[in-house]
Design a protein around this nucleic acid. Structure first.
Length: 423
RNA sequence: GGAGGAAUGGCAGAGUGGUCGAAUGCGGCAGUCUUGAAAACUGUUGAGGGUCACACCUCCGGGGGUUCGAAUCCCUCUUCCUCCGCCA
């Protein structure tokens, strides 16, 4: 959520910047400023009324103390009219504030200046490409065929137990998945991220804090009886660890990593692009999250990108990095780098990590602030990234590692797996 | 599940109807002293709204109520603590 103050001061610049998202924000911002004006005017009236009744109350108190009860009782009558006014103004103020809040929730984050213009993923800017795409044999199989051939992932069993998009990992498939989780967590903690284990369900306030609510309500599984949501990413519980906090500058940087399953309804997805591990309702992910001083958040973002590069380099997977264009940028992000691994057998790129700076967009909702060196309260910056999302990494390993003899495991994973070949 | 107790500023912790946005301590910031630092001393220091700046308004876990007036009384919800029961 953008700050009202920023909208008041820079609305013209913001409208220009949001054009990158192919959004004409002028009407909604005009509406917001109008509602803001309205709210302030009601607030001023209410404040004046309250000031008057506060004054009268004090006088009444004094009169009672000095024994002038009849004068006090006279004044009391004057306050009853004020009470009615206060009540009405309070209701108006509330309606006005709610209307304003609703509009504010509709405005996405302002794209960073480096974000390229564009409509769709076609317009994302490739900023890095890690070399050669391996040449596979003509009879190379996509990962879902490999999974079946070696009996390491069973999609049909998942359908029986739960439904489509909930695979069952078996044998070396399960072990490889566990190995990847442990390997990622080790790499992240080596890089200074504190490991956390988290609740897999969050309350409404947390959903609003990181921006999943109200914008993406339909994408989360909702446990109605308790009004809780299954997390779509560890970003939600991790970032909310610091909701409603006042930090000091010396607390920065704050760095966490956490492994969690992630749950996504993915309503409306179907077809070849969601086959196998490409898109699931439940998948595993290791996330990194940082809370940073605004002056350092873009250095932190670069640092996260370098970190993910290092991991992918060790896994020896063919990948590239994209800077997302305005049209593809998520609602809450100011700048996002996507990492994609090449699925050789499918002949397409699969997103395996998304690293973003949210600047103050989440912090504003989270009330995540710090005292700066001038002693002033300021919003912190939040960032997060996948390091990494498991299923597509697994797909990449299976497809790119297939040989006549079986699937070769990347060397760095062998100590974690206890085997070097799936056959 | 039953019975009690509690929730106050960055933190700890007073405050049981009016001059309380709130004592005190710690922490933070500024200064004195010092070559520098520490210690000591002095001052300052909650958040949000509002204003050109003041004024002013709101906030003592959340919501509702009583009252001219609520941190303080009542109802309700949430969370935490103690005891009993149950249980991985």
């Amino acid at each position: 959520m953008l700050q009202l103050q920023t909208l008041r001061e820079d609305h013209e610049k913001i409208v220009v910047a949001l054009k990158k998202r192919n959004l004409d924000a002028a009407p909604i911002i005009a509406k917001i400023l109008e509602l803001d004006q309205q709210r302030r005017s009601i607030q001023a009236q209410l404040d004046n009324t309250l000031a008057e009744s506060n004054k009268l109350s004090k006088e009444i108190g004094m009169l009672f103390k000095s024994g002038k009860a009849s004068e006090a009782n006279q004044l009391k009558e004057k306050t009853s009219a004020l009470k009615e006014t206060t009540k009405q103004l309070g209701e108006h103020l509330n309606e006005s504030a709610v209307a304003l809040q609703e509009q504010l929730y509709l405005v996405p984050n302002i794209p960073h200046e480096s974000v390229p213009a564009g409509n769709s993923e076609e317009d994302n800017e490739e900023i890095f490409n890690a070399g050669q795409i391996p040449k596979l044999a003509d009879d190379a199989l996509p990962h879902w065929e490999l999974a079946k051939k070696y009996d390491i992932i069973d999609f049909e069993l998942g359908v029986k137990v739960t439904g489509a998009g909930f695979p069952v990992y078996k044998g070396k498939g399960a072990r490889l998945q566990r190995a990847l989780i442990a390997y990622f967590l080790d790499k992240n903690t080596e890089a200074g991220y504190t490991e956390v284990q988290l609740p897999l369900m969050v309350n409404e306030a947390s959903g609003y804090g990181t921006g999943q609510l109200p914008d993406k309500e339909g994408q989360m599984y909702h446990v109605q009886a308790d009004n809780l949501y299954l997390i779509p990413t560890a970003e939600v519980p991790i970032t909310n660890l610091h909701r409603d906090e006042m930090l000091s500058e010396s607390d920065f940087p704050i760095k966490y990593t956490g492994y969690t399953p992630c749950f996504r309804r993915e309503a409306g997805s179907y077809g070849a692009h969601v086959r196998g591990l490409n898109r699931l309702h439940q998948f595993d992910k290791v996330e990194i999250v940082r809370i940073e001083h605004p002056n350092h958040s873009y250095d932190a973002l670069d640092d996260m990108v370098q970190h993910v590069k290092k991991i992918l380099g060790e896994l020896k997977l063919p990948y590239r990095i994209l800077r997302l264009c305005g049209g593809d940028l998520g609602f809450t992000a100011a700048l996002t780098y996507d990492f994609e691994v090449f699925s050789t057998a499918q002949d397409r790129w699969l997103e395996i990590s998304s690293v973003s700076n949210f600047e103050t967009f989440q912090a504003n909702r989270l009330k995540l602030r710090f005292k700066n060196s001038d002693g002033k309260t300021q919003l912190a910056h939040t960032l997060n990234g996948s390091a990494l999302a498991l299923p597509r990494v697994l797909a990449g390993i299976l497809e790119n590692g297939q040989t006549d003899k079986g699937i070769k495991i990347p060397e760095v994973l062998i100590p974690y797996c206890g085997f070097d070949l799936i056959d």
